[in-house]
Design a protein around this nucleic acid. Structure first.
Lengths: 233, 233
DNA sequence: GCTTTTGTTTAGACGTATCTAAATCATGTT
DNA sequence: AACATGATTTAGATACGTCTAAACAAAAGC
């Protein structure tokens, strides 16, 4: 009943909906790479199956069952991403597409064994939280989008919500990975933000929509001198 | 164009066909767990796609393209089985079902990495040969079905072509795995064969259709005394 | 408040994969 | 050689997942 395609729709709706703003047909269509009528038909079926709340022209929101389904797929996806990097030498730019296919085809047993092999990890290679076996997820509250940081902010990359392999490769080549310390040196008025990568001291300019997907948290050890300087600058 | 279902049909036909005897509709239907009309429809489509030679009422045989397709899936399947046992603690009875699903969803890259990680293995956990990257397969000619062994034969288990998890579990519990030395002690006239497992000295009776799926080869070291005794008995 | 624009839904179609029921072919028996 | 039997195919139906074209609702503009 919950086919791979339905799982993909669950994922999309999960990402698009908000507490009180449902995912609209056009948004889902864009996210899924299909035409709106396809989405309408699918939402109707998913509503019949009790996966979403749906009313014509009003978009869709996940039911509890739908959310569980989405979290299960997300769990599979993120465990796979980590598994592929840890055990099979993939890098963070390659894992997404592979995991997007395989996530729909793992048995309960296999997921458990992968999780055990990896030592019940909390986050995937992009820093995204991995739902637990009972489908709980804790979004990290202490982090913030790089796009919203003030000039002068120094922070550590803690998550990169970007699925494009090209962008991820670019970022990696530019020296950005989880844990990289960044200083925001300029926010231009035309949707661009420039940072300095603190390990290489190299400047890096990014369009705001890319920076929006990079999340940072405060440096961990405020005791050190250099770090404090930057925080107070 | 070659969907997972088509791949399943390719596998079935590959197993069922013989040099000059095509796979018949009813056989394929039985193997696939579907009704004959479903098979007819599928064979017509596969013939249109150049995967099988098919003429009404005459069954189907793989074309070269079809055989390549079958071998690719078989390669994926067997590499997965070995991967699951080696890296994720599966035993030989569990791997089949898991591999049957995943085999259709591996990228070229992933297959290559799994193969490299395993060190380009020749056989899977059941002793079945793994097709190479260029889809060559060497069936082992020096082995023989246990069902065809004479009483008194001593031989080593080299392959178990059995996909039922229950049967494989049973065999494992009875002490049979790859490399186990067996002595055929009796072939009963009602389709049963009794062996002695040489490590445990325990007797084991098997119906002929199970024994037919167990393949054995001559013991490797004929220099040892005990072994020669048995060969000459 | 009426109208235009934009987004959404219905209607009708197609390909995959399956089914049942009915028609047809192939073959072995008499 | 005709026939009965069994296997196979056709015909027609259903569910999934997608499309295009046309109808329709909601929001924005005047």
């Amino acid at each position: 009943m919950v086919t791979p395609k339905v799982e993909d729709y669950l994922k999309s709706i999960y990402r698009l909906q908000d507490r009180d703003t449902p995912a609209m047909t056009a948004e889902v269509a864009a996210a899924m790479g299909v035409k709106p009528p396809t989405v309408t038909a699918m939402l109707q079926r998913m509503a019949d199956d009790g996966l979403v709340h749906y009313q014509r022209y009003q978009g869709a929101q996940l039911t509890d069952r739908g959310e569980k389904g989405a979290l299960k797929v997300l769990r599979n996806h993120r465990l796979l991403e980590l598994f592929l990097t840890e055990e099979l030498g993939y890098d963070w730019a390659e894992v997404h597409d592979e995991a997007d296919v395989l996530e729909h085809h793992l048995s309960e047993t296999l997921v458990e064994r992968i999780e055990a092999l990896l030592g019940s990890p909390a986050v995937d290679p992009h820093g995204e939280p991995i739902p637990t076996a009972d489908l709980e997820i804790r979004e990290c509250e202490t982090q913030q989008s790089l796009a919203k940081c003030q000039e002068g902010t120094v922070a550590v990359v803690s998550e990169v919500r970007e699925s494009s392999a090209d962008v991820l490769s670019y970022l990696a080549k530019a020296g950005i990975s989880l844990g990289t310390e960044l200083e925001v040196v300029e926010t231009a008025p035309f949707g661009m933000i420039t940072c300095k990568v603190r390990t290489t001291e190299k400047p890096l300019s990014l369009p705001t929509d890319v920076a929006a997907e990079i999340y940072v948290s405060r440096p961990a050890e405020p005791a050190e001198n250099e770090r404090r300087e930057y925080n107070e600058a």
